[in-house]
Design a protein around this nucleic acid. Sequence first.
DNA 1: TGGACCTTTGCATTTAAGCG
DNA 2: CGCTTAAATGCAAAGGTCCA
Length: 349
Amino acid sequence: MATDSRKRQAKREDGRPKTATLADVAKVAGVTSMTVSRVIKGSGYVAPATREVVLRAAQELNYTANLAARALVTGRTGAIAIISGDLNLPYCANIVYLFDSLLSASGYQIHLLHTRGELRDLINSTNSASVDGVIVAGMHHFFEELSSLDRHVIPPCVHVGITKPSQGDYVHVDLRPAVEEALERMLAAGRKRIALVGVGSHLSVDETEIRPQTYISMMQNAGRELEFVSASPRYEVPGPERVNIIKQYIEANGCPDGLLCFNDDIAIQTYRALMDLGYRIPEDVLLVGCDGLPILQYFEPPLSTIAQPMEEMCALAWKFLQNRIATPDAPPQCTNFDAQLIVRKSLQN
DNA sequence: TGGACCTTTGCATTTAAGCG
DNA sequence: CGCTTAAATGCAAAGGTCCA
């Protein structure tokens, strides 16, 4: 102990800042560092009087736990990586916000990543994962790739989103029933031209994407022509530009009388384009988005949307990940939710 | 190459309390 | 008083990286 103190003192003379350690607190409190550790962690037996003395010493020395040293012993970093799409997308921002609330409440820190390269760097930096777990929001291809890597290097992983990975823990939401319901309502209302807004006829988003898949099968079963208003749902296309793309399409081709939008962002831009061109909702066009953004209810008329039970999904995914961290070899945990169609005036005749 | 860094964990030891 | 049990505390080792 005396040796340690001399070394710390020497460092201080070198001009390096000295931070209090468990041993420093222990010395002041007159106990060993193990007792201090128990008090700080709140685990194990410590007499109330001893606890008080230790806490006072810790406060006096402005002690904060050395997370790196703790990770060294426990193999836990107290950090979770979240890999999501771009935060420009309200859907992704909302997911990150929800996980942030959940993880913070559990005392975890978040590493927010957007690319597989970022996670790889994180892992390579120490030859082992420097996070306790990974949440992959959407991006199921990435999840599959991650799951196939060396399990000794890759931390526990859970996927949450509208695609269903072939392995691992996941929380999946099925958009199909709600998309079908929206299209059935448009068909039942006698709408002649029902188009999908946001994806081109070449289905540039993802061939496994359930929205265009459902749209195509429903329209074909109803004997209807397929019609795609190509306005990339990706964030690279700025909103005003997308409004113009949609307006140009309508001016060139006339306006479909039913519009299913790939997401709520696109629904809002489609709304803007329709208003600018003098179309009425729902009289001329039935309009529905997808994401469940609350702001849609404040439009006039209020916009319909396909909503996912985001809070339940995120809470369950976090529970799955905690289970996986605790028992790495347990069987896969999977849950499926159905998205719900929120019908507002834009989808009512 | 080996020791220092800092913390936690499993196990061992000591102390206190309860009871006949 | 002496035994048993529970509570409280301490010891030793381990972990990855850095630096002399």
